[in-house]
Simulated scan of single mutants.
Amino acid sequence: MTYKVKGTCVSVEFLVLGMLENNVYLISDGTATMVVDPTCKADKIVEALNGRKLDAIILTHRHSDHVGAAKELADKTGATVIASAIDAPMICGDEKLPRDDTRFNPCPVDRMLADGETLKLGGMPWKTIMTPGHTKGSMCLFLDPEHTDNPVGTPVLISGDTLFCGSIGRTDFAGGDLNDMRRSLKRLSSLPDDTVVLPGHNDQTTIGAERRRVFAYYA
């Protein structure tokens, strides 16, 4: 997939990896490349980069199926590891994981994001939207062409395990909360209908499609 943002083309590639069939995204605008939620098989992710320099590893939340290969991938590429300030202490091992979490190799987090903060990678300004519900520190990243030089571009949302195609992330794990999830979904429902949603699992979708399904029920 290729989306036009800021007068250039933002390419979105993905691998489906792991027992839970995670979507591992490789996103690039030609000047910077990021990988989102490397679940496993760091070598396969490096192979998919096809020689491109990896600038950032984005972790939408602390669950093992989203961070399992982060440490190995960072060691192999030297990429900056980025997560929310809330989930980062568990990702890097400074805080213990809840008893029902699957263990993973802790990964140092180089940059911690807060709500509303902009992460600039190449020509891509990603706005941080904190979306607790699946975990306390779950976050989404929103690329809004209205905040760039190209107002006709396509908005893109990296939704992690907050919003799926026709569904939402589970709230029954430690740190999950359905009321928090409802509030997070209400925030996402304010995004433009044509926003392309890149979820952590299953098919890609749009905010408009989920307005008729998920948001009508939860938000």
Rank of each mutant, 00 (worst) to 15 (best):
V12W: 05
F14C: 05
V16L: 08
V16G: 03
L17K: 13
G18C: 08
M19Y: 06
N23I: 08
N23D: 06
Y25A: 02
I27N: 05
I27A: 01
S28H: 00
S28Q: 04
G30P: 07
T31F: 10
T33G: 02
T33W: 06
M34G: 03
V35Q: 10
V35H: 04
C40V: 15
K41C: 12
D43T: 09
I45C: 10
E47F: 07
A48K: 14
N50A: 15
D55E: 13
D55T: 10
L59N: 10
T60Q: 13
H61N: 15
R62K: 14
R62H: 07
H63I: 11
S64A: 15
H66P: 02
V67E: 08
G68S: 12
G68F: 12
A69Q: 03
A70M: 09
E72Y: 13
E72G: 01
E72L: 12
T77S: 03
T77V: 03
I82E: 02
I86Y: 14
D87S: 09
D87C: 09
M90D: 05
M90N: 05
I91L: 07
G93A: 10
P98L: 03
R99F: 11
D100G: 09
D101K: 08
T102D: 12
T102I: 14
R103A: 15
R103Y: 01
F104T: 03
N105E: 14
P106R: 07
P106M: 13
P106D: 08
C107R: 06
P108C: 04
V109P: 03
V109H: 07
M112K: 15
M112R: 15
L113A: 02
A114W: 01
E117R: 00
T118Q: 03
T118M: 02
T118Y: 06
K120E: 06
K120S: 12
L121R: 06
L121A: 06
G123V: 02
M124E: 02
P125R: 07
W126R: 00
T128R: 02
I129L: 15
I129F: 08
I129V: 14
M130C: 03
T131A: 11
P132D: 01
G133Q: 13
K136P: 00
K136F: 04
K136T: 13
G137I: 07
G137S: 04
